[in-house]
Design a protein around this nucleic acid. Structure first.
Length: 308
RNA sequence: GGACAGGUGGCCGAGUGGUUAAAGGCAGCAGACUGUAAAUCUGCCCGGUUUUCCGUACGCUGGUUCGAAUCCAGCCCUGUCCA
């Protein structure tokens, strides 16, 4: 245990996209010996600094930032992968007397870091690719055959969960529901968490989503997607489905006009914010403080209590 | 001025006499959520406190019919074409 940081404090600022997390974290981080750690599943990729709304290079220089753009788009991230990486960064921060601030909107990632996750062995790329190539009906039928109870618990249309359950039984010979009876790797019990959930007014949030996407378009999002497309990554790679990539791709290949691409990108952003809102509102521990205010420069200081 | 085409629920768009509160899609709202989660999926979605209930509804007005979004007449509006 490190004497300079006896409490192993970890701050967390979570909330939907465009809720002002990044700015708030940066603002608060400047007041002390902090580092900022990304907790967003799209901001991990180096291919999308603009479209995934990573802090600017300048911002990243003002305070140490970690796990932003640290993976190449060919490497799909996962909750477990990110959690392991975050664990390492946090341990190092604590060892050097710094307090990490986790900032992000990926609820599952954050939960995995804190609570751990089922210790399921890595699934081979071959099997995974094979299973993901299956149409839903076929995948569901296969799951009914290999793991009927889990199949029964899932909607026959839920391709994402069906394929995961299927790849797990097929590669380990054991039901995913069995695996899930245990969780490993969570650090929640060994740290002092200072969480803060940002759940601002909906109309304010949506306006910011709209503005943000337009700003991205003006600041190079198109060129970013253009470069990404040249890489010919698989369509289902996480980077390829980041908000804005499909919309801007459609614009680039002439399927959509610029205005339509923007409108759709804005809608996708808002819908995503909405989903995150629902996640944090209902999935996060009730004890976590919820801030239902609009975050801005004039009230940011009020949240310094998060670090006390 | 004339000829066609068309006006459907917030938007797009099916429906051409009853089984239609009106397919489907979009947007919106609510929810789920353990390894690609910026993913994936579910419910609601004209109004009325639940309903096999009531009201209102397919440009407007009137008509035909047991019954009309669907047929007829007139009017208004939109698009394309001819003048």
């Amino acid at each position: 245990m490190d004497i300079s940081n006896p409490q192993n404090k970890v701050a967390l600022i979570a909330g939907p996209t465009a809720s002002g997390k990044t700015a708030l974290a940066l603002h608060l981080a400047k007041s002390g010996n902090f580092i900022i750690i990304n907790a967003d599943s799209a901001q991990v990729y180096s291919d999308l600094p603009i479209l995934s709304a990573q802090p600017t290079a300048e911002e990243q220089r003002s305070v140490p930032h970690h796990l932003f753009g640290y993976l190449d788009g060919v490497t799909p991230c996962s909750a477990a992968r990110w959690a392991a990486d975050a664990r390492g960064v946090i341990a190092h921060a604590h060892a050097t007397g710094k307090t990490p601030i986790l900032v992000g909107g990926s609820g599952l990632y954050i939960r995995t870091l804190l609570d751990g996750i089922a210790p399921i062995p890595e699934v081979t790329l071959e099997l995974r690719t094979e299973i993901r190539a299956m149409p839903v009906e076929q995948a569901y039928a296969a799951l009914q055959h290999y793991d009927a109870p889990v199949a029964a618990s899932l909607a026959p249309t839920d391709i994402s969960r069906i394929t995961r359950a299927l790849e797990v039984v097929q590669s380990t010979g054991r039901s995913i529901s069995e695996w899930r009876k245990s969780k490993t790797g969570g650090i929640g019990d060994s740290i002092t968490l200072r969480p803060l959930l940002l759940l601002p007014p909906r109309d304010w949030l949506y306006k910011r989503c709209d503005n943000r996407f337009e700003m991205m378009m003006e600041r190079g999002a198109v060129a970013e997607v253009e470069a990404l497309l040249l890489r010919n990554l698989p369509q289902d790679a996480p980077v390829m489905r980041a908000i804005g990539v499909p919309e801007i791709s459609a614009y680039l290949n002439g399927t959509l006009h610029r205005d339509e691409a923007i409108a759709r990108g804005q809608i996708a952003t808002r819908q995503y914010a909405k989903r995150q809102f629902t996640w944090f509102r209902n999935q996060a521990p009730i004890a976590w403080p919820r801030i239902e205010l609009e975050i801005n420069d004039s009230n940011s200081d009020n949240f310094e209590t998060i670090f006390q």
